[in-house]
């Protein structure tokens, strides 16, 4: 039977965290390469040489 004192949100979350937490045993999972690097065309390289690299968003 579930205790009556887990009837509110905080108790529910706390109980789930306490009793159901995953074991801590990290394992790396690096992203795999699935696409070939994008090659710039000669025209794009020429445009960059003339006008410079396009500004990146957020700078």
């Amino acid at each position: 039977m579930i205790d009556s004192d887990v009837s509110n949100q905080a108790d529910l979350i706390s109980a789930v965290r306490r009793r159901g937490a995953l074991p801590q045993a990290p394992l790396a999972m690096p992203a795999q390469r699935l696409e070939r690097p994008r090659r710039l065309s000669r025209w794009a390289l020429l445009a960059m040489a003339i006008w410079g690299r396009p500004a990146r968003a957020g700078r």
């Binding site: 995953l22 074991p23 801590q24 045993a25 990290p26 394992l27 790396a28 999972m29």
Partner: peptide
């Protein structure tokens, strides 16, 4: 699944 493996994968 990736999130699980990164957290707990080494245990299994």
């Amino acid at each position: 699944i990736e999130d699980f493996i990164k957290t707990s994968g080494a245990a299994y």
